[in-house]
Design a protein around this nucleic acid. Sequence first.
DNA 1: TGTTAGCACTCTATACGATTGAGTGCTAAT
DNA 2: ATTAGCACTCAATCGTATAGAGTGCTAACA
Lengths: 348, 348
Amino acid sequence: MLDERKRRILRAIIDDYIDTAEPIGSRTIARKHELGLSSATIRNEMADLEEMGYLAQPHTSAGRVPSDKGYRLYVDHLMKVNELSLEDIEGIKRAMEVKINELSQLIRQASVIMSRITKYTSMATTPQLKKSTFKAVQVVPIETGKALVIVVTNAGLVRNTLVKVPERITPDFLIQISNVLNDKLKGLTLNQVNSTIIGEIELEISVSTEVLIPILHGIAECISQVDSVDVFLDGTTNILNYPEFRDVVKAREFLSFLDERELISKLLQSEEHKQDEIEIKIGSENHLEGIKDCSLVTATYSVGDVIIGSIGVIGPTRMEYPRVISSMNHIRKIINQELKKILGDNTE
Amino acid sequence: MLDERKRRILRAIIDDYIDTAEPIGSRTIARKHELGLSSATIRNEMADLEEMGYLAQPHTSAGRVPSDKGYRLYVDHLMKVNELSLEDIEGIKRAMEVKINELSQLIRQASVIMSRITKYTSMATTPQLKKSTFKAVQVVPIETGKALVIVVTNAGLVRNTLVKVPERITPDFLIQISNVLNDKLKGLTLNQVNSTIIGEIELEISVSTEVLIPILHGIAECISQVDSVDVFLDGTTNILNYPEFRDVVKAREFLSFLDERELISKLLQSEEHKQDEIEIKIGSENHLEGIKDCSLVTATYSVGDVIIGSIGVIGPTRMEYPRVISSMNHIRKIINQELKKILGDNTE
DNA sequence: TGTTAGCACTCTATACGATTGAGTGCTAAT
DNA sequence: ATTAGCACTCAATCGTATAGAGTGCTAACA
């Protein structure tokens, strides 16, 4: 498709452009890279590359700029992904050493690190509750007429809601209810809670629906809590350091996008994402208007072989892909490693 | 100190400046406001006001701009705070009607509303745990070797941590521990947990420290959780709509400031804040460098007569103070009202 | 036939000067 | 005390000239 020389030249251009954010001219390439070619030859090749759609020209007398298609080729075949520097690895290790024993905190911390070492914006989601199963359900009496419903999922996520219960219910009875609920629900996926099960529970503790209803509501609330999927964002202002966002209009567009957690969480839960693979979406490959000039690098983390969440880095299409990718690879490993520690070896 | 006419003129200038963000000239004032004065007279008065420090001039041939001192006078004595429009009141009411039964959600929602109706950035904090007392402490067995420690404070805040416990501990025994803990700690303030109390607890359940330690750690973790004070931010990008932040450097300064949750939480927990009063800090009155061109309007909410958290709006010094203040007043009332509902009437 | 030197051409960015217009301060008249 | 009038100031705007980076094309070369 593209002969070796063209590929070399394209890579040189993109490498340079990632570095400088300035359109790259033929002379620059001839001088900086040892290709043994004159600027005129390179000029011809660049014209070809443009015709093929890998490069674009802001205006006739400017240098060339990579197109999304160009970046795609670069990412798939041209770039050299080097190992993370020892320094960075050390830094990550140190940052993750902070004793973490809850999932959300682990992910939050990972997100912080990613934004710090990449200098872009990072985003992460905790598991979708709906895909999880109940590990424990507890009803804890707080004071007369009030109880706390707690749901713990197999992915280690904890959610709780305060509910009101009829005043005449004694704490002891609540605990009894709690035990039955726990027995009945444990192991089920969250959306398996249906009327059959509820019937069984009612039967078992022979309690009027009146009592059970607020509690079940609490559970439902835990499950469908608006932000049941936490979205963490870090380094949101990093983007303002890049020249392509010097324009306030661009900057606002980007930042407004980040404000919509729903969108982000959708973005991160891309359907086609394969386990253990890093996914890269370049510019217009993101079908969302607000980030058509951004690239997104995402990875997932899993329990067993079920993907339960993901972490991503978003920045200008002119992104240091090699760096981001190697960092992402590293952090993904660490997350999965720590995840095992948190959940213990006895994860079903 | 300032005669009536000067005050009238100053108010007119500030009103106009808040509206337009453009330096105000003498002719504008003479034309738009019915003061029965010529531009020349106003010009003289403006020169006086500038000398007194209420106004400033960007350059010799420009109009006048209010100084921080000018805004201060305006806020304290000149502006007219009108009632919130029925429309707005209706809007707020509708937005808060969403069934809310946990404190954090209430505050979060209030913050969202404030940013929406003021068009500035809003910030809010949930109660400081340290000032609170224990309402309930529970240890819930999750699976062998693991338990969830839950702390509920009198202010309705719930925190939890997963802890490891020796595997030989049975769930029943954990529950027993839980009960003792609950009895012993209930009503204490969070930093009253000391070795005496721990001794008592050990005595009562005659358990080796080995078991108790992870649990107490869990409680400590709940108490000192890094972000035990949640900080909610909304409308962070609103600021980009105002001309004073058209410059990316300014915008970044502001947004970077917002990234530091610690600073914000300190900012909101201003020492001198009186209950039931709205506090206004104008420009350089905020001693923090990053927001010296911003004004901050804050209110607190309380349980009984203890301030447990606050909510604030931050925007350019050229802020629509009257609107912000009346909105703030309204939302504060609603928060305190809802707070009572959540905590029930039996709040000690 | 592929490569390169050379050159005319294009187009942006920058600098510079002139012009405009809003606004001021001062003076003199009311 | 107020105001009309006027000279003056200064940022913003516009047009023009200029410099410089980069291109495409042609013709010569290996």
